[in-house]
Amino acid sequence: MTRMLQLAWTGIFPRKQVTGRSLLDPSVYTMRVLPQDLDLLMHVNNGSYLQLMDVARFRHVAEMGGAALGREKEFGAVVAASTMKYRRSLKLFDRFQLTTRVLGWDERCFYMEQVFTRREKLCARGIVATRFLHSRTNDRLAPATIVGWLAEAHGLASPPESPALPDDVAAWARVIGVAPRAQADA
């Protein structure tokens, strides 16, 4: 419940934009495992990882100016798909870092990587495909539109191009069907 409150707080009162933070810059959020994050085996529950990732993504978007832009242009993000790989357990009161970064985008989705580390050791890695929807009409907004608005808000002459997606992420997107249809059918 506390993570849901943290997520609500982050959404209602987003973090201020970090000057100079661009779309492709990673953000690092230091957190601590709380009792409500645990399962019966006394390590972070798989569902709790997803909630922690939600909080970190909201923070990441706010730091690049996306929260204010979303209110102005009336759009919000939804998760289209996600996948996780768990490597080491996080236990009660462990302090850890959650690094969020945009890997790239295509005609349909943004692809983000979220990495949990503790003492510089990998604990878990999540990949998230995100879509943006208009708040009133629920129409999907193309990632190029969002990137263009962010570039304009940052005073850039032209929007950046998407980096090439890592092979594992591009393959995952095709297999689960969030990649553009032409790529998914190829």
Results as ranks from 00 to 15, higher is better:
1 M>T: 10
1 M>V: 15
2 T>D: 08
9 W>Y: 13
11 G>K: 15
11 G>Q: 14
13 F>T: 13
15 R>M: 05
15 R>Q: 12
15 R>D: 12
16 K>D: 15
16 K>C: 15
17 Q>W: 05
17 Q>P: 04
19 T>K: 12
20 G>K: 05
20 G>F: 06
21 R>K: 15
24 L>E: 01
25 D>G: 01
28 V>F: 00
28 V>I: 11
31 M>H: 03
31 M>C: 00
32 R>H: 08
37 D>E: 04
37 D>L: 04
40 L>W: 11
41 L>V: 02
45 N>E: 13
45 N>P: 15
46 N>Q: 14
47 G>D: 14
47 G>N: 15
47 G>F: 04
51 Q>G: 10
51 Q>S: 15
52 L>K: 04
53 M>R: 05
53 M>D: 09
54 D>A: 06
57 R>G: 08
61 V>F: 13
62 A>I: 05
63 E>L: 06
64 M>E: 12
64 M>K: 02
64 M>D: 10
65 G>P: 03
65 G>Q: 01
65 G>M: 05
66 G>A: 06
67 A>I: 03
67 A>H: 06
67 A>Q: 01
70 G>H: 07
70 G>C: 09
72 E>T: 09
73 K>N: 13
76 G>W: 12
76 G>S: 09
76 G>D: 00
79 V>E: 11
82 S>R: 06
84 M>N: 12
84 M>V: 10
88 R>I: 02
89 S>F: 01
89 S>G: 00
89 S>Y: 02
90 L>R: 03
91 K>F: 12
91 K>D: 12
93 F>G: 04
95 R>S: 09
95 R>A: 10
97 Q>K: 07
97 Q>S: 12
99 T>F: 00
99 T>L: 00
100 T>I: 05
101 R>Y: 01
102 V>F: 09
102 V>N: 12
103 L>H: 02
103 L>N: 09
103 L>W: 12
104 G>F: 03
104 G>L: 02
108 R>T: 08
111 Y>L: 14
111 Y>D: 12
112 M>P: 00
113 E>N: 02
117 T>A: 02
117 T>V: 05
119 R>E: 12
119 R>T: 02
120 E>G: 00
120 E>K: 01
121 K>A: 02
122 L>V: 01
122 L>K: 06
122 L>T: 05
123 C>V: 00
124 A>W: 01
126 G>L: 09
127 I>N: 05
128 V>F: 14
128 V>L: 10
130 T>D: 06
130 T>W: 11
133 L>G: 00
133 L>V: 08
134 H>E: 09
135 S>L: 14
135 S>P: 01
136 R>Q: 13
137 T>Y: 02
137 T>A: 03
138 N>S: 15
140 R>E: 13
143 P>G: 09
146 I>H: 07
148 G>I: 03
149 W>R: 05
150 L>Q: 08
151 A>S: 10
153 A>E: 14
156 L>M: 12
157 A>H: 14
158 S>E: 13
158 S>Q: 15
161 E>V: 11
163 P>N: 03
164 A>V: 12
168 D>K: 08
168 D>I: 04
169 V>K: 07
170 A>G: 14
172 W>G: 11
175 V>W: 03
176 I>L: 08
177 G>A: 13
177 G>W: 07
177 G>D: 15
178 V>P: 03
181 R>T: 14
182 A>W: 07
183 Q>S: 11
184 A>N: 11
185 D>H: 14
186 A>T: 10
